[in-house]
Amino acid sequence: MDQLIEESLKHSIAAKQALVATQMGGIKQLAQWMIDTIKRGNKLMIFGNGGSAADAQHMAAEFVNRFMIDRPPLAAIALTTDSSILTSIGNDFSFDDIFLKQIQALGKEGDLALGISTSGNSPNVIKAVEAAKVLGMQTAVLTGKDGGRLIGLADLTINVPSQVTPAIQEAHVWVEHILCQIVDEALYGRGVSA
């Protein structure tokens, strides 16, 4: 048990260190895009599957409610939460279209689409990013491993250079949290900490 715990911690730390070493510029760029999007009165649209769906919901909640400071709600929506929309699209068309149709219905120029895919190969994330680009939205993705098919597809890719899936997902949560903190502090200062 001790060995498993130590190995897991080692992989998690190594993934975050590699991420910061290789993707610092991308993290800062995405934070600035988020700040600009919100300042313009536009919204963040976040999506992914499985654990990445949970990340999308977690991140949207941090923006709409609060992260570390009390401040006004910020416009963010997770495209993973409406079971009627998800199941009707999946049933009537294809699971590959569940984010695409929501982007087409709710997205507009000036919004920012953030896809999350550990492998970088999720067909529904790929289709949504493509649709967002057609609408004139900025597009960014969080990926892992070699970045998969999403590398080069979005305007900005933040790739965790690790082969260990749990470590990639843990690094994604860290990125999501630091983005929330940067956006909060850029727009509202440090405020009252939670």
Rank of each mutant, 00 (worst) to 15 (best):
L4R: 12
Q102G: 14
F93C: 04
N121I: 10
D96Q: 11
D184L: 00
M68Q: 09
V192I: 09
S119M: 06
I46S: 13
M45T: 00
L114I: 15
N91T: 05
L86V: 13
M24T: 08
G110L: 01
L9Y: 12
V141W: 08
R66L: 13
G48N: 09
K10H: 13
L112P: 02
L106K: 06
H11R: 05
V160K: 04
L4W: 09
A31P: 07
V173H: 05
G136L: 12
A171P: 07
L30F: 04
E176N: 14
I126N: 08
G26A: 09
I69K: 02
E185I: 04
A60F: 09
Q29M: 06
L179I: 10
L86T: 06
V20Y: 14
S8E: 10
H177V: 12
N65V: 15
S119N: 08
A140I: 03
I38K: 01
M59A: 06
K133R: 04
N42A: 02
N49W: 01
P73V: 03
A171N: 07
L112N: 01
A113F: 03
G191L: 07
F99A: 08
A61M: 09
I77F: 01
A54K: 12
W33Y: 00
V125D: 05
G120E: 08
A56R: 11
L135K: 00
R190H: 15
